[in-house]
Design a protein around this nucleic acid. Structure first.
Lengths: 197, 197
DNA sequence: AAGGATAACTAACATTTGTTACAGCTTAGT
DNA sequence: ACTAAGCTGTAACAAATGTTAGTTATCCTT
């Protein structure tokens, strides 16, 4: 009946949520049972409920934590004194780095948010929509200033954001180039694709 | 006790699989029950088993059908007399068009193949790996011939393929640009990002 | 050493899951 | 109209699901 082995600077609840993030990524939210999660944490399923109130709550915490980080970042970028293309580059780099260093959480919140229930579902849907519109606005500004090719801004956003989620394949691949090189390659292709020559 | 209402040129089994594709896209494979599927088909759950042998079989049929189409196409592209960059463009356009016109199937097979079980799982994993390597080889050829920027080929593949899956957002969006315009925008950005100026 | 708080365990629950058995209806070919 | 095959519905199954109740062990503070 040993207590949950916890790493320093990490509460029991955080341990559970981190483990859940990994399982949700590997198997998906619906295909992960509370007994699976308990086993990985090293505890009986019922014991999890001393730390979390439901399976749904775990997904909520993951999704809103990630959403907050991206929202916080775009606030700063919008306020910064940068050209439009540099702003887009900054956002792209942030996405890449989040995907590199907080892989499980970011990936899960991007793929599994549909399993949220209202009011959380509506909230996240709205946040995602607003977030994309804010990026689209920066791109449209860049098009006006002729820094960016004359393209459909929502399409550009969609390409950017989905391309980043491809980092999942990088994580799972055997022969990895370094994270830094990956980032530069992605920037080269995507910013190169957007920039007016 | 009416029989399954079937559209012309479509067997009962095909009707079931098409309906399943839509539900698997909307809710995911694991979160879709056979009773959900039966309801959408307009039948009791048990009756489905006169046409399919298991839930798993539905996913298998979807995944292998899509895989075969992509494999068949890349065969043709490799055999064609085209520059490397034109080959990549052809593959990209095929992906976009498949995603536009066979949305449900393509999207589901791309997102839910992890829920296959062996030997189907291993088979699809291998096919996906080989497919990506074949694209990467074309890109590397293009780099040698200086048609394409000096980038990491697997990274370029990853960006291409994941960017295309962003068409899901386009399908769900209200104010849609046309499929043709979408395609041209995606080609502009992605091929523009790869091509050596 | 004691006591209270925390967190673990066992057991059980009501549902939901994929699937099967079986009997009755429907349709197609004669 | 008759029969055989095909399709559907009802009922049921064992297993798995998320969660709760109640009990016991462990830890921290004093």
């Amino acid at each position: 009946m040993a207590k949950i082995r916890q790493r320093k600077n990490s509460t029991r609840k955080e341990t559970i949520i981190e483990t859940a993030a990994r399982l949700f990524r590997e198997r998906g939210f619906s295909a992960t049972s509370m007994r699976d999660l308990a086993e990985q944490v090293g505890v009986e399923a019922a014991s999890l409920y001393n730390h979390i109130s439901s399976k749904a709550e775990i997904l909520q915490e993951l999704c809103f934590k990630v959403a907050n980080e991206f929202m916080g970042h775009i606030d700063k970028v919008e306020a910064a004194d940068l050209t439009a293309i540099k702003k887009i580059e900054a956002i792209l780099r942030f996405h890449i780095q989040q995907m590199l260093h907080h892989y499980e959480e970011v990936y899960v919140s991007d793929r599994e948010w549909k399993h949220l229930t209202d009011p959380y579902l509506s909230n996240i849907q709205t946040q995602r929509k607003v977030y994309r519109q804010r990026i689209a606005s920066i791109i449209e500004d860049g098009i006006k200033k002729q820094e960016i090719k004359n393209i459909d801004a929502p399409t550009a956003v969609l390409i950017m954001l989905h391309a980043v989620s491809g980092i999942e394949s990088w994580h799972r691949s055997r022969e990895k180039i370094s994270g830094e090189v990956l980032e530069e390659n992605m920037i080269t292709i995507l910013i190169g694709g957007l920039r007016n020559k």
